[in-house]
Design a protein around this nucleic acid. Sequence first.
DNA 1: GGTACCGCTTCGAAAATCGAAGCGCAAGTG
DNA 2: CACTTGCGCTTCGATTTTCGAAGCGGTACC
Lengths: 127, 127
Amino acid sequence: MIEIPLPGKSVRGSRTGRPIMALLDLLGRRWILRILWELRDESLGFRALQARCEAMSPSVLSQRLRDLGRARIVEQDERADYRLTAPGARLLAALLPLHNWAENWAKSATSLPPAGYSSPKKRSAPR
Amino acid sequence: MIEIPLPGKSVRGSRTGRPIMALLDLLGRRWILRILWELRDESLGFRALQARCEAMSPSVLSQRLRDLGRARIVEQDERADYRLTAPGARLLAALLPLHNWAENWAKSATSLPPAGYSSPKKRSAPR
DNA sequence: GGTACCGCTTCGAAAATCGAAGCGCAAGTG
DNA sequence: CACTTGCGCTTCGATTTTCGAAGCGGTACC
């Protein structure tokens, strides 16, 4: 059985139960951010959602929709299409600025050395 | 060899090269969001960072720091401590509202049915 | 010399993810 | 009615990712 991160529960990497830790655990699972993104302005059925994500595994999609459902971030409408709940929509709104950031990221990234990033420093200076 | 998502590159779930897709892929990797969060207002060394995340695997931490380094989101200072770059700090700023959202999430979640969420609808209505 | 940190790698085990196949169902078609 | 089509979703073996204990080489201090 897999733990679905919920506020107040112990999650991966934190036993404090702080809500932000549960959220970071949940959002850090593969495809979760993408699913939210694809639901940003329309409801989608299971297979439509799968198609938007270049045919992600149906097993994982099913799992993620359960996760998001239990977290009350996503729900199904009367047609069984998936859509954001009211809190889910607010969460997505908080994520929208990422789009702009990514555009700027793209601009600066193309003007950077193409391969090999600055090698890591070896060790710390004396404390 | 593992692909590090960069704008313009083909990433998991999207061959369009749209920057937002690369970003969602990167942020959706385990521990990435948490690492950014822990670096939000201080530089941390490798082991300190590991300790903040309840002893996450050093192998994964190392991998993630490489990912974030190549994406120019994290860099090392002269003491070899890890810190956010200028764009990295802007990215984090975009993520800060998540904290507030999570707090409200926690409030509403405690007043919900504790187990078993509304069963999924079976199939779609006619189109 | 010895001790105590440090950044980070290695490598086998465990867990998550993938993906092709396909089940059961409802609605539409002839 | 039989047949097809599309749907939500599960199953299960293969692949990939993550875990985590151990430890290496280095610096600093004693």
